[in-house]
Amino acid sequence: MDYLALYVTLKLAFVTTVFLIVLAAPIAYALAYFRFPGKSLLEAFIYLPMALPPTAIGFYLLMVMGPKGFAGKAWGFLTGDSLLFTFIGITIASIIYSIPFAVQPMKAAFAKIDRRLLDAAYVLGLSKRAAFLRVIIPNSLGGIAASAILVFLHSIGAFGVLLMVGGSIPGETKVASIAIYEAVETMNYRAAGMIALSFIPISYAFLLLINKLNEDYRI
């Protein structure tokens, strides 16, 4: 059993989740509370990774993050390293791949908050930032948790995007989904079956958790 690949998968999913929750919160806030020109265009663009074939996203990321792409060049200039075939590279890819799953539940949770609560907070002297931290966030915990779980599960399942950007370097970019594919390619069905099986309890437990959260926060 390829524990190393499983470890890379979980590490990637964890890092992606932590980064995305922090990154998606202001995006979801802007989408839920502000009206600005081109908002629907921007929103559709943010959700685009959900609708594109993963290999298509992977292809564009490969172009952008490659030695001739602007992200690859900038990274190379700053660190002297390549972005492709590294853990950081697949983390960036995984973040972009999962953005819609972070933004959507959070936006829905933020939008559901009664505006009068915010008015009350402003009258009580809270700045918009303080109201976000002290009123919006604590009243959206269900949505934020749903975002985190969806992102985590979605990152565990990523395959095409990661293969395009990261290849399959053991301990670095070879995640469990890629390990399964490679095991099958080498006719090692037993190894593939073991890794595949190990996904089921993890994913199932998280889905149960999501259902539980939805029940708890239903009003």
Partner: peptide
């Protein structure tokens, strides 16, 4: 002047309290 700086008390018809506290 922003509502934050007016320092007034405002009791709404309902829904004034924060549900998480």
């Amino acid at each position: 002047i922003a509502p934050q700086k007016r320092r007034l008390g405002y009791v709404f018809q309902d829904y004034t309290l924060f549900p998480h506290l």
